[in-house]
Design a protein around this nucleic acid. Structure first.
Lengths: 118, 118
DNA sequence: GCCCATACTATCGAAAAGGATACTGTCATG
DNA sequence: CATGACAGTATCCTTTTCGATAGTATGGGC
């Protein structure tokens, strides 16, 4: 079961925000989703796009995204194996959120991540 | 120092998204920011708005938000103590992001957080 | 029969995040 | 002199997360 770092229980009015973040929170999830905005990718392609990810973590994050219904996983019965990942409609619906994050990040973060003045 | 759960180093193109999430990731940060959208709040008020937070965690999250420049902390030299928290201009600039998350969450998440169809 | 590519899986361990609980300091009030 | 409000601190411990490393499975090509 997906972890509950952002539990879905303490639902003050900010609940929806919390829960939404819960789905894209995880060391690599947002980058994965971001890359998938451009189209279907194979396991190895994602791996190459995100240099520091280990296969263990990549599998892990992809599986959680799949469990949460944000991406689809298509296995081809060939050798060597081939598995395609793509955004589901639900995942695609997160595009505005990802874009908002991207825009904000580009506008307010230096290259090494410390925020600078508004 | 703020933790580096979403490190600011592995900067593929998705970097900005990653880094932006890094700032609002933390069990309570998004809810705190969300409540602060409505205006300045005192420590105790935030505590009451978020029932399950312990003072330790609340202090912790507020301090990280402050370090990252998203909120301001104003101490009044009175007894009993009074400390006000408010969004900085940088924090205010995250409003679109928070709203995007809220809108998405409201549209796609059931009350207990499992996403449902697009 | 062995190697290769691809997409994993398994195990171990370290680090970080988060929760429970109890305690501190100040001054006006009673 | 004790009490209470408010905003934290301090300590301890569990859970979660993440990284490193090595191993598995398949079948075509040599």
């Amino acid at each position: 079961m997906a972890k509950a770092r952002h539990s879905r229980f303490d639902c003050a009015p900010g609940c929806a925000v919390e829960a939404a973040i819960g789905l894209i929170d995880g060391k690599w999830k947002s980058i994965i989703l971001y890359h998938l905005l451009d189209g279907t990718l194979r396991f190895g392609e994602i791996r190459r796009l995100i240099p520091n990810v280990t296969p263990r973590m990549l599998t892990n994050q992809l599986r959680e995204l799949e469990e949460d219904g944000l991406i689809t996983r298509t296995v081809f019965a060939v050798v060597p194996p081939r598995v395609d990942y793509a955004l589901s409609p639900l995942g695609r619906s997160m595009e505005p959120v990802l874009q908002a994050l991207k825009v904000w990040g580009d506008a307010h973060l230096g290259l090494y991540g410390k925020p600078h003045a508004a």
